[in-house]
Nucleic acid binder design. Structure first.
Length: 931
RNA sequence: GGGCGCGUAGCUCAGCGGAAGAGCACCCGGUUUACACCCGGGCGGUCGGCGGUUCGAACCCGUCCGCGCCCA
């Protein structure tokens, strides 16, 4: 429970976080940097973040579990993570306060390509490659790197305040998780759902490995479309291509079998330029006769469509590239050239032979890039391992269709179905060293054996497949491999399925589809029966991307990225969290700017100051909130608003509406509690002190305490640090982390409370407006008197309740014997019109006053016009609901009364002006001079 | 080419059938013992265009224009 962190802080003072007998004081201002790190450590040390299986299995508590989609071991916390984690933490903290047993499991992904690249780059500094060390030694070096430099993100997550169960940290290459990988690989292999085949795959010449479809990003790039004549100079064979160099691997020309133009050519051969090989012309119905000349070159080793054509016509597939995409084995002068170099050289050679028939440059077409390195993907024939996704993907789709898993927001489910229902087989082998090595061994006579985790590899003469598995394969097991699967552990029993997966919609296919497929398979013992409980998560909550302040995607090249850690340093973790949560509308992107975060920092300061005020005035949280009859209208109002805010916030969180929940709390805290209740409480306390009314003092303090206590609890999931600091000081309680989530009080609403605040607001605002128009500084007291139409307001209890605080809030002092009303304004309240008379020391700015009245008059006239037009419409009167008509009538009446009133006032001003410009000239006008 | 989404105040976004809203920015006052990271007041919008449905449309339906994203 003690603060262990002693890092230097920006400000010398820090709030004492230890609950003590006497109430500690808050410092002059709130400095997040001075408290956050120590507070976090205190929470961890207290064990608040640990989820206990026993409490779930005994039935004592409901489980709420989240597995963190594992970030890359090479990664840093970027702004997308910050959003992701904030939302998860809001849910985790809310559920923990609501009495659930929360288990949020952290960990990292070994990130095959990225991690291997990092270490290879280090080796390259010394001019070495991984081959200089050999596989075993190299892998040891990667582990060394992981121990020394990997996982920076875990420390950064603490800065954010993630209420994570650190005791459960996992890594995809841990022994247990590796055993899970091997187990499910063997199960799928034995079931025929994993197979090895020679196919066209996406080859990255930069990473020197095959990658899956999903790791390829397509973009519209400028290239060229070159039409080339094959065969003799007068040959009719002309094809068009964007990848000229692949012609070296052509093994046929294809035309549509029904194409009258070329039908007679089928079965003949044509000479392949530069190479000299004769290649056949085949008829294949895949060819589109309307595209280009209606003839296509066929390169079976380097294009998926051509591969299929090749298969149908038993054509050879000639690989013309090395692993790093240099031309090889063609017997032409182009051997040894890089693919782009070769493209230009071959085009030049063809041009010299007069074979270039046409050329379109630039030619916009879709080009695949490696999502990791950015290199242009080279489709290439290679032998790889695949997952046969058919039955798995169907199960994943059906689990959502049948409601085992719910996707929020629901619109995005369509995208999920679309993808999962049309998924290609998944390439899972990678030509890397860092990762889970494929557990398949090849025998001396070409046998193949898949080895399970408990089996001994075969001996002499057998060799293991050199490839490793796609990182997403092990990540796909994350929701259960981390809980001890394939053992039937208590953790799985207590916390699987996980309650919710929170991630960006851009990762829908990566995480959700993969975890879903493998989870459903593993937990159904391979039957893929969709029984409740086999799904890896009950809910998938998708958020959008964080963009810059102009809605542009953040990127390194644009330099518009924002570092969340810098924001935390400058404004505090709470400010960043609140900003992100406040922008998180389901499934839609949000923009972020430091100004926004500064605004949230200001909000945290506001909370701090409001609490400070409350404490200075003896606010206390009573065991029982004050009884209804002790409450003033202001008290009743703020407590009602608290009840409403409790209900609304709870409902919104249950619906993953983080932005609306945060916005509602901001409004309650600032616009209602601080701007109105606190100001009214000041008036109330002052009056009670003067009257010696101890009961009113106590009840006001109790309401202040109750309203603030509820607010801090509701805000805690969003801004845990500042609320913890304030709440422990206010209540002396141990920690908000384990405090109860608020419930509505059940108190009956007071009939007049809402009207009261509406009237106070209106009266105060009108007086302030008048004062501002008249140039009376807001800190100057003015003598004033407020009267109702039929006499003194004091005799009317309801009006007096409004008028007294309104006068105080607008700095009106009581009228004494010298009072001379030099200006007056009317304000229409719910109970009637009141007249506010002011002694402005004789001066009045008639022009300003006239302008204001004219503006109000215009508004009233517009209102009359609108309502009269509508009420004159017989159709509306006949068809619209009674409620609407009644409302229109009362609006029309009110506006008419306003118009009459304002007109009379304007006439009076006009008359006074004509009589002698200023009504009173006894005293020099101080305010007039000041203006 | 197919699918999804979005065009509302200077910027970023709520609102999705019955009186145009917020935050930030901007302008004018103000050191009011909780807060200048603040307080008070103010300016600012034919809700992308055009049609239609309806007594009534920012909101529903067409259509066009512009901008995103996903998939091929």
């Amino acid at each position: 429970m003690t603060s262990t962190d002693t890092s230097p802080t920006a400000s010398g003072s820090r709030p004492d976080l230890e609950p003590t007998g006497s109430r500690p004081e808050l410092p002059k201002s709130y400095d997040p940097a001075a408290v956050e790190v120590a507070l976090y450590q205190r929470w961890v040390d207290a064990g608040y973040f640990h989820g206990d299986e026993a409490k779930v299995l005994s039935g004592e508590k409901r489980p709420f579990s989240i597995v963190l989609p594992p970030p890359n071991v090479t990664g840093d916390l970027h702004i997308g993570h910050a959003l992701d984690h904030t939302l998860m933490d809001v849910l985790a903290r809310w559920h923990r306060m609501s009495g659930d047993e929360v288990m949020w499991l952290p960990g990292m992904d070994h990130a095959g390509i990225a991690t291997q690249n990092v270490v290879e780059k280090q080796l390259a500094v010394d001019g070495k490659t991984r081959h200089d060390f050999g596989r075993e030694l190299f892998i040891e070096k990667v582990w060394d790197w992981k121990r020394e430099s990997g996982g920076a993100i875990l420390g950064q997550m603490r800065r954010l305040g993630d209420s994570i169960d650190w005791q459960r940290e996992r890594f995809t290459l841990d022994d247990g998780l590796s055993a899970a990988v091997q187990t499910i690989f063997k199960q799928l292999y034995d079931a025929g759902l994993i197979y090895r085949a020679e196919r066209i795959t996406n080859w990255c010449p930069g990473c020197l490995t095959a990658i899956s479809d999903i790791e390829v990003d397509h973009s519209e790039d400028e290239g060229e479309l070159v039409s080339i004549r094959y065969g003799a100079p007068d040959s009719p064979v002309v094809i068009a291509t964007t990848r000229v160099e692949t012609m070296l691997g052509d093994t046929a020309i294809a035309v549509h079998p029904d194409d009258e133009r070329y039908r007679q050519l089928i079965g003949t051969t044509v000479e392949l330029p530069l190479v000299g090989r004769q290649i056949p012309i085949v008829g294949d119905s895949h060819v589109d006769p309307s595209f280009g000349t209606g003839m296509v070159k066929v390169t079976p080793a380097h294009d998926p469509n051509d591969f299929e054509i090749g298969r149908r016509h038993h054509l050879p597939a000639i690989n013309i590239f090395t692993d790093d995409a240099q031309i090889t084995g063609t017997g032409t002068p182009f051997d040894g050239m890089d693919r782009f170099q070769a493209r230009a050289a071959i085009k030049q050679a063809l041009r010299e032979q007069g074979r270039i028939v046409a050329e379109k440059t630039p030619y916009l077409h879709s080009v695949g890039h490696c999502s990791r390195s950015g290199d242009v993907i080279e489709p290439r024939l290679s032998k790889q391992w695949f997952v046969k996704v058919g039955p798995l993907a169907k199960a994943a789709g059906d689990s959502v269709r049948q409601g085992l898993t719910t996707i929020h927001p629901p619109e995005l489910a369509a995208r999920f179905f679309d993808w999962v229902d049309n998924m290609h087989d998944w390439t899972i082998s990678r030509q890397l060293w860092w990762g889970h090595r494929i557990p398949v061994w090849y025998g001396p006579d070409g046998e193949m054996r898949c080895v399970g985790p408990d089996e001994q590899p075969p001996g002499e003469g057998w060799t293991q497949d050199p490839d490793v598995l796609d990182t997403w394969f092990s990540s796909g097991l994350w929701p259960f491999s981390t809980m001890g699967w394939p053992e039937h552990t208590d953790t799985l029993k207590a916390f699987y399925p996980t309650s919710v997966l929170v991630t960006g919609y851009d990762i829908l296919f990566f995480w959700v589809a993969r975890m879903s497929m493998l989870g459903l398979y593993a937990m159904s013992e391979g039957t893929l029966d969709l029984r409740p409980g086999s799904q890896p998560f009950d809910v998938v909550a998708l958020h959008g991307l964080v963009r810059d302040q102009f809605g542009k995607k953040m990127s390194k090249s644009k330099g518009n990225g924002i570092d969340p850690l810098e924001l935390i340093d400058s404004y505090g973790a709470d400010a960043l969290r609140f900003t992100l949560a406040r922008g998180a509308n389901p499934g839609t992107d949000q923009s972020l700017a430091t100004d926004w975060v500064a605004g949230s920092r200001n909000f945290c300061s506001k909370l701090f100051n409001a609490t400070k005020f409350a404490l200075l005035n003896g606010a206390a949280v009573p065991q029982q909130p004050p009884a209804g009859e002790q409450l003033t209208d202001a008290d009743a109002w703020i407590l009602e608003r608290l009840d409403e805010t409790v209900q609304r916030t709870t409902a919104l969180l249950a619906d993953y509406q983080f932005a609306k929940a945060a916005e509602g709390l901001y409004h309650y805290a600032w616009d209602e509690f601080c701007d109105w209740y606190v100001e009214l409480a000041k008036v109330q306390l002052r009056a009670a002190e003067q009257a010696g009314d101890q009961q009113r003092i106590d009840s006001t303090r109790a309401v202040l305490g109750t309203a603030l206590d509820g607010l801090l609890r509701l805000l805690h999931p969003f801004v845990p640090f500042v609320t913890e600091t304030l709440w422990t000081t206010l209540t002396g309680g141990d920690s908000l982390v384990i405090a109860a989530w608020p419930q509505p009080s059940g108190r009956e609403k007071r009939a007049g409370a809402k009207t009261f605040i509406t009237d106070v607001d209106k009266l105060v605002t009108e007086i302030r407006r008048f004062r501002a128009d008249q140039g009376i500084a807001s800190n100057v007291s003015v003598a004033g008197r407020i009267r109702s139409a039929d006499g003194d307001v004091a005799s009317d209890g309801q009006l007096a309740g409004v008028v007294t605080p309104a006068a105080a809030l607008t700095r009106l002092t009581a009228a004494d014997d010298t009072f001379t009303a030099s200006a007056a304004l009317d304000v229409t309240l719910s109970g009637g019109v009141v007249t506010v008379e002011l002694d402005t020391s004789g001066s009045i700015d008639v022009a300003a006053e006239t302008a204001r009245l004219r503006k109000d008059l215009a508004a009233a006239e517009k209102e009359i016009e609108q309502t009269t037009a509508k009420l004159g419409n017989q159709q509306l009167l006949a068809k619209a609901p009674e409620k609407v008509v009644t409302k229109l009538r009362s609006r029309q009446q009110a506006a008419t009364a306003e118009k009459d009133r304002i007109t009379a006032r304007l006439d009076a001003l006009d008359a006074a002006g004509r009589q002698g410009r200023q009504p009173q000239q006894d005293q020099p006008s101080q305010e007039g001079a000041a203006r």
